[in-house]
């Protein structure tokens, strides 16, 4: 097992454990922190896959901006409450069972998916994830969605204003 493989497994386990911890933490602040860990792990994967731009963006946007936003909100609300009263036990069990079933179905499906056999994700090589190439594509082939996403932001902004503004 080479270093890449080791890294892959390490990052995967980290992501999964951190993801689970997001669920299990009682304190929402901890959840946020664990989520950030997940993001870091995923960014690690991106780097492994040689998608450097996305790795950075993921860190900056997600782990940085978005998660900080979450933290602010949680702090704003009241960090000290031992948060939520736990959900009804049965409902939780039902949720876990449903999720477990879903996962089982997923796994069995992927196992049957023979078209994915012998296919690998290229690690460490390839240049499509490089910022230059992405930038070129973004401003040539993907300029329309890029511009249109501005509408999305605009509406989100207007929305935030409408919702947030005090009457």
């Amino acid at each position: 097992m080479g270093i890449t493989q080791s890294l892959f497994w390490f990052l995967s386990v980290l992501a999964l454990v951190a993801a689970l911890m997001v669920l299990l933490s009682k304190n929402p602040v901890h959840s946020v922190l664990w989520l950030i860990v997940v993001f870091f792990a995923i960014s690690g994967h991106y780097i492994l896959l040689n998608a450097q731009f996305l790795a950075i963006v993921n860190l900056i946007v997600y782990a940085g901006a978005i998660m900080v936003l979450f933290l602010f909100v949680i702090m704003l609300m009241n960090p000290n409450t031992e948060t939520e009263p736990r959900k009804n036990f049965l409902v939780q069990i039902a949720g876990i069972v449903a999720g477990g079933c879903l996962l089982t179905v997923f796994i069995s499906l992927v196992k049957q998916a023979s078209e994915m056999n012998n296919k690998t994700a290229l690690l460490k090589t390839g240049n499509i994830g490089l910022i230059g190439n992405l930038g070129k594509a973004l401003f040539s082939d993907f300029v329309v969605p890029f511009e249109i996403s501005s509408v999305l932001f605009l509406s989100a902004m207007v929305g935030a204003v409408v919702i947030g503004k005090k009457n």
Binding site: L152, S155, A156, V162
Partner: peptide, 10 residues
């Protein structure tokens, strides 16, 4: 879909 949805949430 997203442009459609987000304003509606608001």
């Amino acid at each position: 879909i997203e442009i459609l949805s987000i304003p509606l949430y608001i």
